[in-house]
Design a protein around this nucleic acid. Structure first.
Lengths: 300, 300
DNA sequence: CGCTAAGATGTAGCCATACTACATGGAAGG
DNA sequence: CCTTCCATGTAGTATGGCTACATCTTAGCG
């Protein structure tokens, strides 16, 4: 019992279904039957009443009750709410994979589900302390360099477009040599944001090391602990669900973009009121320009 | 009563809090008191029992009950579950805005919340029929052109990187003139995917019109009904929460990327088994290459 | 191989809480 | 001023979540 509570607090970063899956081997046999029913079809399990679930699993109600405690819930009501919340995010492909006979609608639904639950995981795993350090570093920066290749390059481009919020010159050259040159020319107050989901990309590492050697600060944005995050002054690690099969879309891009949003917003909030006012003015004039001319596009 | 049901089915695309907000004027006075309590602090409202909520709103229990029916719930239990589900997605900034005295952790939390609930909205509003038509069009394509400016340009770049899944040549030139040239050279089986959140961007419209005139098929990806979606052969409309203030991050980019994921996956699923096998081989060899060399980057 | 003890599971009963039928109070309209 | 209808509260009911206790299984040890 105390163990359950302990685990619940320790592993609150996980979603209910993950917790159940992990607990299954430690459960008693009849409780496993309950777990099987729930994991098999979580959506209809959420509709069940306690008696219904007990009947479906061919066990007694107190067993269902004990099952709830074992997976870290306060009781059946709490269990039902937590399950509903997990389902609201959609099931990650771990639980429902994409197959060839899915209709386009199904595919859309599943990809949205997977993306959302992946972002939920990212939300749970991103360390606030690291975010705070990153924002502090950028606030003190004279200029920012964003680097990344492939999908991570797209994130870098997006970050560069947010330079009005960052408030200092930002560059995100696509060419490796250009990146290297820019990194080498880092000053003591230059910040380099090195992006790579794997954290193993040789070129990105090279650029990050060059920036570091030149005396700049390196913020890394990776999907896990890796060489890049190890060498960075401020490592940002944001976990998503890995691509398990061919059709799993990569959600690390999305999570990366959200982190960039967070940094940009966090920095803008801490800048001077004049800067904030300028950003506000820019936004409203941009909107006005769009209304009249229809020539602008949405850089936000 | 029948009205409630009708509305519930009609407006099931909305989240519970939105529904409550919209219903407020049509509610009786004491029901409005309940609504006020719920909207004021939805998080702690979700903890309430029926009696507790009745006491907090200084009304009787049946009034709470009637309130639940009025906002399209089956009863109080259903209400509680729907509320919990809405909260699981996080509150969009409509309900909790970002202020200067938020800690970096708060900012991160709020931006994640806003992004996730925005994607949830996108999930609810994207028409499956349109997705199906878009996939069909791409399956029949000889080549694809992605166009967009600013944030939408980033989406175009990302889409271009997914060409292995699409299975036909894809281009996404950043330069307006290049885009125009490419569009003008569209053949009867060329597909142009024109991306603009506002759907008013003059350049994007110009390119889309050129592609259309040349005999190609135009798929639009916009945030609302607009000139671009009107002229497109296949309009994809994906709604998100608008940027209400300076610090609201734009979530249309994210939703756009997810739609691209959906198209790419939907198309890949319908391609020949040989094509699927080739993609699978590419993915595994890419992974192997990363493991050994550490030179690759994550294009997925 | 049997006995014992601990753990797993079911039974029975209680209490809370969601829900419903009905009554009362108040407001609007004639 | 009376009447009617609508809003709101009161009282009662039953379902469903939860708990104390009994029974059965199983494993460990003599």
């Amino acid at each position: 019992m105390t163990l359950d509570v302990e685990q619940a607090s320790e592993e609150s970063t996980d979603t209910l279904l993950e917790r159940i899956t992990r607990q299954v081997p430690h459960l008693r046999r009849s409780e496993q039957r309950v777990a099987a029913i729930v994991l098999d079809d979580p959506v209809s399990a959420a509709q069940f009443t306690m008696a219904g679930l007990a009947e479906a699993a061919e066990v007694s109600e107190p067993t269902v009750m004990r099952f709830c405690s074992s997976v870290g819930c306060e009781g059946f009501q709490d269990f039902k709410i937590q399950l509903a919340q997990t389902l609201a995010l959609g099931l990650p492909v771990t639980h429902s994979s994409i197959t060839a006979d899915d209709s386009p609608g199904d595919v859309a639904e599943k990809i949205f589900d997977h993306t959302i639950s992946s972002l939920d995981r990212a939300r749970r795993t991103l360390a606030p302390a690291a975010v705070e350090k990153a924002i502090a570093a950028i606030l003190d920066a004279s200029d920012i360099l964003f680097v990344g290749f492939g999908a991570s390059g797209v994130i870098a481009q997006d970050a560069q477009q947010k330079f009005p919020l960052f408030g200092v010159p930002c560059q995100a050259p696509e060419d490796f040599h250009q990146q290297f040159i820019a990194a080498t020319m880092s000053g003591p107050r230059s910040v380099t944001v090195a992006i790579s989901n794997t954290g193993h990309t040789e070129q990105t590492l090279t650029v990050a090391r060059a920036a570091h050697k030149a005396g700049g600060t390196v913020i890394s944005l990776t999907g896990r602990t890796s060489p890049l995050s190890e060498m960075a002054d401020v490592p940002l690690i944001v976990r998503t669900f890995e691509d398990t099969d061919v059709y799993t879309p990569s959600t690390s891009r999305l999570a990366g973009l959200v982190v960039i949003d967070i940094l940009a917003t966090g920095v803008a909030l801490r800048r001077s009121p004049e800067h904030t006012a300028a950003v506000r003015r820019m936004k409203s004039e941009l909107a006005a320009m769009r209304q009249s001319d229809d020539t602008g596009e949405d850089p936000s």
